[in-house]
């Protein structure tokens, strides 16, 4: 169930994604730019799907993990997610 009092914003999603990607890469969050494709950091496309899957668990909604292929930067993914959550 999504909690209507805590609808994520692009900012909160971006911050969560930065932490998640940093955790997967073993890097500091400060070193992750939100406007470059995640492949820049050596995340291959199939591996990136597991990040989308973590996002699905975090938000407790059903997401197609290939959303991360259509929106390959953290900025684009955050914006797309907010749009998707609003339309859901």
């Amino acid at each position: 169930m999504s909690d209507l009092t805590a609808v994520p914003t692009p900012e909160s999603l971006r911050a969560w994604l930065v932490d998640c990607v940093a955790d997967h890469l073993g890097r500091a969050p400060a070193g992750i730019a939100t406007d470059v494709p995640l492949t820049t950091y050596g995340l291959d496309s199939v591996y990136a799907l597991s990040i989308a899957a973590e996002l699905e668990d975090h938000l407790d909604v059903s997401l197609d993990p290939t959303l991360i292929w259509d929106h390959p930067t953290i900025d684009a993914l955050s914006a797309a997610l907010v749009a998707e959550l609003r339309s859901a």
């Binding site: 199939v46 591996y47 799907l49 597991s50 899957a53 973590e54 668990d57």
Partner: peptide
């Protein structure tokens, strides 16, 4: 490798 990529989620 495909399985290993999903370790975290499967564990959860």
């Amino acid at each position: 490798n495909a399985l290993i990529d999903q370790f975290r989620r499967l564990a959860r």
